[in-house]
Structures are given as structure tokens and as C-alpha cells.
């Protein structure tokens, strides 16, 4: 849990400077990448670097404009939704743990295969999001991942790699 961001926050949303910096950096990288491109072939009237230069420059300018707007008191309207309660601060812990679960899935999927990592992904996310009965979470996860594996393999004809369970499934 972090500090609440609502009523007590100052007029300037400082985090927006971070976004502005990101835009300038991203734009700068696009420009740098464009500078490394060579002239196109004779049949390319639009040089490969033309559009990147426009896009990169625009991102840099937008980043600067956002910084200026932020300094002048511009504040974002965070998105609302059915399950969203913006009156509380950002729950960094939950988001971080969820990201970890997703990273684990990426790291393990080639070795273990979707049927296993998918189950872990579901159960892990459910636990992180506040589910208390992890046995049931795991059971639902296994049902979903094995079910979807067979569904894709048999029903849709998409052979998802089985990973470590090759030959078992």
C-alpha cells in the first residue's frame, strides 16, 4: 500500500513528469534509430527515416508540452470502471505481484508448457487478487489450462506446445 493520492495531493501531479520524461526518451530513441537508417532504394520516394523523424520529433515535443502543462497544474483524469474504486491509493503491491506472476509465466512456459504455467498463472493471479482458498484456485487453474490446451488442440486444431508434459497430454 502506498500513500493515498487523492484529496491531500498537491496541485501538481509530479508523476506526470515521469511520463513526460518517458515520452522525450522514447522520442529521442526513435530519432536516434532513424538517424542510423540509410537512404532507401531508388523506388522508395518516402525515405525509411522520414516517418520515424516525424514521429520521434512529435513525441519529444509532446513530452515537453506535457511537462509544461503539468507545471501549469494540468491533472490527468484516471480511468474509471465497474470494479474500480479511485478513492483509494494505488495498490502497488498487488500490481507488482501480478507482474511477477506474469514474468514467471514467460520464464517457465517454454520449459513447463502452457498446461502447467497457465494453471500457475491463474492460481497465482487469483491469490494475489485476494482469493483465500488456494486449493480451489489451483484446481480451477488446472481445469482451465488443461481444458484450454485440449480445446485448442482438439477443438480448434491449434497445437500449443506441451512442454515438459509432451507425451503425457
Amino acid at each position: 500500500m502506498t500513500a493515498p493520492t487523492t484529496p491531500s495531493t498537491p496541485l501538481v501531479d509530479k508523476a506526470q513528469y515521469g511520463l513526460a520524461a518517458f515520452l522525450v526518451l522514447a522520442g529521442g530513441y526513435v530519432l536516434l534509430d532513424a538517424a542510423g537508417l540509410e537512404d532507401g532504394f531508388a523506388d522508395q520516394p518516402v525515405q525509411p527515416y522520414t516517418l520515424p523523424y516525424v514521429v520521434g520529433a512529435a513525441l519529444v515535443v509532446l513530452g515537453i508540452l506535457l511537462a509544461v502543462a503539468t507545471a501549469r497544474g494540468d491533472r490527468p483524469e484516471a480511468e474509471e470502471g465497474e470494479d474500480i474504486d479511485l478513492t483509494q491509493g494505488t495498490d502497488v503491491r498487488t500490481v507488482g505481484l501480478l507482474a511477477l506472476v506474469l514474468v514467471a509465466n514467460i520464464a517457465l512456459i517454454d520449459v513447463l508448457g502452457w498446461a502447467i504455467t497457465g494453471a500457475l498463472l491463474f492460481a497465482g493471479s487469483a491469490v494475489v487478487l485476494g482469493s483465500r482458498s488456494w486449493v480451489r484456485d489451483l484446481a480451477v487453474g488446472v481445469a482451465l489450462s488443461v481444458g484450454s490446451w485440449y480445446g485448442f488442440y482438439v477443438g480448434l486444431g491449434i497445437p500449443i506446445p506441451a512442454g515438459i508434459l509432451d507425451g503425457v497430454l
Binding site: 470494479d83 506474469l102 498463472l121 497465482g124 487469483a126 485476494g130 484456485d137 489450462s145
Partner: peptide
């Protein structure tokens, strides 16, 4: 809600994979 959003992450990953 934990199941709903875990399910979204699950199916999103499956779709992308």
C-alpha cells in the same frame, strides 16, 4: 473478482501465446 481478473490474465496470455 479474483477469478474474473485472473481469468482475464489467463485468457489474454493464452490468446497472445
Amino acid at each position: 473478482r479474483p477469478y474474473l481478473y485472473a481469468g482475464i490474465l489467463f485468457f489474454a496470455s493464452l490468446g497472445a501465446y
